[in-house]
């Protein structure tokens, strides 16, 4: 098992996104640090557009994540609906 992670700036844009990530990834651990939030998960993390849209109450393009992204770790795959991070697949 290895840790994948994604870190986002701590701001109003990312609050609902972080909530969505927590909903979709029960194994994820949310670490709040000065000005940033780092989300760790064992081997796999998925970010779903639909869950973010539910939290946000508007349509969302997953590429908007680029704006508030700080860093990530794991093999990335992105399409219109999901962004996944994986180790050891």
């Amino acid at each position: 098992m290895s840790t994948v992670f994604i870190a986002l700036q701590a701001n109003e844009d990312t609050r609902p996104i972080i909530d969505a990530i927590a909903l979709d990834n029960p194994a994820a651990v949310i670490n709040r640090q000065p000005a940033m939030v780092k989300i760790d998960a064992p081997d796999h993390l998925v970010i779903r557009r639909e869950t973010i849209e539910d939290q946000l109450g508007r349509a969302y393009d997953l590429q908007e994540l680029q704006i508030n992204l700080i860093t990530l770790s794991g093999n990335v795959d992105e399409d219109d609906d999901t962004l996944t991070l994986t180790w050891n697949s």
């Binding site: 700036q9 000005a35 508030n68 992204l69 700080i70 860093t71 990530l72 990335v76």
Partner: peptide, 17 residues
Amino acid sequence: TVTFGFSAQSDEARHMT
């Protein structure tokens, strides 16, 4: 510094990938 740092780092996720 936080601002330029995080702004640069947002590109860095793409660079690392």
